[in-house]
Design a protein around this nucleic acid. Structure first.
Length: 637
RNA sequence: GCCGCCUUAGCUCAGUUGGUAGAGCACCGCACUUGUAAUGCGAAGGUCGUUGGUUCGAUUCCGACAGGCGGCUCCA
């Protein structure tokens, strides 16, 4: 009985019973067979050698298919494991999944692999490819699978098998001397892998639990062609060149010191950027109806007990004792805002009340987790708390969505990903309250037409969060903003407002930030723009480069006029050639260089050079100043 | 916190059978007066992260600690 399958172009093809994807490919043409990596049957990806069910919709998966990259990466992970087992027979295999941009495989081995080991493992991988092993799948019974991996001594795999749900099929893959537990699908032959590279080795806890043993994780990546692989490696280099820690040093923005680990010291230039960001947010706050407040740094632990931080957040807090009284440095501003709210009596007419705070926060982060500006122990959020009546929440959320979009647009973060982070294990408040809060956020997003995914268990201890993620210039995702609903803290602080009918109500509290932390945002922004800040943020916006001593006075006049307009301007009077001055200004990523010599001094002009556009020719000083001022005022990108 | 790696001049880095160190750039001085990404010459600059140990002798070998990097876990 022949079978019939439907191809993507809607044509129907008859094949003998039991025909596989490979048979189909061959029937269409030998070149297609050669190009095929797997087969898609009714939305499921299967091995090329799987037999096709009658009546199915079938598509051959070649390198053009977006899912094919995942298949070759997964197969590359198996290839890695095979090479490791050959060179290090004692190594036990863990898991080897595909991740963004590549794959990894975990091995239980002592000592861990060295970078030199990686070189020999990669060489062995190439050998396995050349040996052109066919890759075959077999379905295993549960007991059979357990016995087989037990016999192989692969106890981690045994543990995994035990946890596979009873209704799920268990399968194994063989390629030459290597056998692995795997769902698949895989490429049909190891010779199909052409472009891969092992990148680095690191430790990882077995099954992600820090109570478990640490395995040696080998990271690698694979592509269809060597060219794509090389492009990817180039992107990694590019990312390295943009590293904010490197640029921060080169551009004189900030430094770190052993005296205060994981705590940035902002130098004058970094402070300019930092303060510009604060000013920018303040400007928005005035328009959006926020009031700024200033609150203390060290507060009695009794307040942290009221807020719940003492109970749920203690391990991240700094404590100090003075006159037998215990204080904690604030890790968050919210409780202090509750004290301000509670200092007066509020009518429904006063709500919403929006308190913004650029207060310094301290959070004790475990020593291995800090990183540059993106994870520090002291930082400042563009933090605000909105106290409103329950019926005002929807409007507050809607206006916040508009606010956050406007801010991200300014920086060129045009793509936003949104997640709803739901109740964590460590939390305050009843399940009813959490239901209410989670539903409020979800509904608010639906009303605003915002698409989101759910991130279970990632909420704050006092309430669920909406997390706003942006993609930077290299399309790397970063979490920046957040919006959180909190029914607990107003209750714990006994906050009230008087309703129109003269009854007392408890306000809802919204915690929200847009940039996240200024430190972290600055790090991300540096990498986003590769250190070339937009003019409004640039620590030095223009530099005057006199060619000879004869025009020093003219150059100084230009500097003074720019200065009088509030521009951040420098004058390079060093005894250097103009080429050297330009080079240094370029390296400092100063947006505008004004080259002036005898000609410009005589005509009252400036020769403008832009850091990206190059030499723009001579123009009148007035025209140039008007243009740069315009750029600053509009916060042009 | 855990695993691995790293720490030499302001910066970027050299430095092997263990004998107290070198380059480029920057800084300082002198000359040059310069037209869109590095002018030349000279001088100066280091208890080799800290601290124990081994050794006649440690930047080098071993340990502890600190800081950093790559990850894991956690997270703004």
């Amino acid at each position: 009985m022949p079978i019939a399958v439907r191809l993507p172009d809607d044509s129907v093809r008859e094949l003998p019973d039991g025909a596989t994807g490979a048979d189909l490919a061959l029937a269409i043409g030998p070149r297609l067979l050669d190009a095929s990596l797997a087969v898609r049957v009714d939305d499921h990806l299967l091995d090329l050698n799987s037999s096709l069910p009658n009546g199915a919709r079938v598509a051959l998966v070649t390198s053009k298919d977006p899912d094919s990259l995942e298949i070759i990466r997964h197969s590359a992970a198996h290839l890695l494991a095979q090479a490791v087992k050959r060179l290090f027979p004692n190594a036990k295999v863990g898991i080897g999944p595909v991740i963004e941009d590549g794959f990894y495989y975990d091995f239980q081995i002592e000592p861990f692999f060295t970078p030199e080991d990686l070189v020999s493992i990669e060489a062995e991988m190439r050998k396995v490819c050349e040996e052109a092993h066919s890759v075959s799948r077999e379905v295993l019974g549960r007991d059979e699978a357990l016995a087989r991996f037990q016999a192989m001594g692969e106890l981690l795999k045994v543990e995994l098998i035990s946890d596979i749900p009873a209704d799920q099929q268990i399968s194994g893959y063989r390629q030459g001397d290597f056998y692995d537990l795997c769902r698949g699908p895989h490429i049909p032959n190891t010779s199909k892998l052409k472009a891969f590279k092992l990148l680095h080795v690191a430790a990882a806890y077995w099954r992600g639990d820090e109570k478990n043993v640490q395995l040696c994780r080998v990271y690698g990546t694979a592509f269809h062609t060597q060219k794509e692989l090389e492009e990817h490696l180039k992107r990694l280099e590019e990312a390295k060149a943009r590293d904010h820690r490197k640029l921060g040093k080169e551009l004189g923005l900030f430094s770190f010191h052993v005296e205060a680990p994981a705590s940035p010291f902002f130098h004058p230039k970094g402070t300019v950027v930092y303060n510009q960001l604060v000013d920018f947010m303040r400007e928005h706050y005035r328009r959006e109806g926020y009031d700024e407040v200033i609150t203390p740094q060290a507060l009695d632990v009794s307040m942290w007990k009221t807020s719940g931080h003492y109970e749920k957040y203690q391990e991240n807090m700094y404590f100090t004792e003075v006159e037998e009284r215990e204080y904690a440095l604030k890790p968050m501003n919210c409780p202090t805002h509750c004290l301000i709210y509670g200092a007066g009596k509020h009518s429904y007419r006063d709500l919403p009340i929006r308190y913004a705070d650029f207060g310094r926060l301290h959070r004790y982060e475990r020593s291995g987790v800090t990183q540059g500006l993106t994870r520090v122990r002291t930082f400042c959020q563009d933090d605000a708390h909105i106290y409103c009546a329950p019926e005002q929440m929807k409007a507050e959320m809607a206006s916040f969505f508009g606010f956050i979009k406007a801010v991200y647009d300014t920086f060129g973060f045009e793509e936003m990903r949104v997640a709803l982070a739901t109740r964590p294990e460590k939390r305050l408040g009843s399940d009813e309250i959490w239901d209410l809060a989670e539903n409020a956020l979800a509904q608010g997003m639906r009303d605003a037409g915002i698409e989101f995914h759910v991130s279970p268990g990632d909420g704050a201890f006092y309430g669920p969060k909406i997390e706003f993620q942006v993609l930077d210039a290299l399309r790397r995702p970063w979490q920046l903003g957040t919006l959180q609903v909190d029914y607990s803290m107003p209750e714990r602080f006994g906050l009230r407002y008087t309703r129109a009918d003269n009854t007392e109500g408890t306000p809802v509290m919204l915690h929200r930030a847009i940039l996240g932390s200024l430190e972290r945002f600055m790090g991300i922004l540096i990498e986003h723009c590769a250190g070339a800040f937009p003019v409004w943020l640039a620590p030095v916006q223009l530099i005057v480069l006199p060619i000879t001593d004869r025009v020093q006075d003219y150059a100084a006049t230009i500097r003074d006029r720019a200065h009088a307009l509030g521009l951040r301007v420098e004058l390079d009077l060093r005894n250097e050639k103009v080429n050297a001055k330009i080079r240094d200004a370029q390296l400092q990523k100063i947006p505008y260089m004004l080259v002036v010599g005898d000609r410009e001094a005589a005509e009252g002009t400036v020769s403008v050079r832009h850091r990206q556009k190059g030499d723009l020719g001579a123009q009148s000083l007035d025209a140039f100043l008007a243009q740069i001022q315009q750029e600053v005022q509009t916060r042009a990108r």
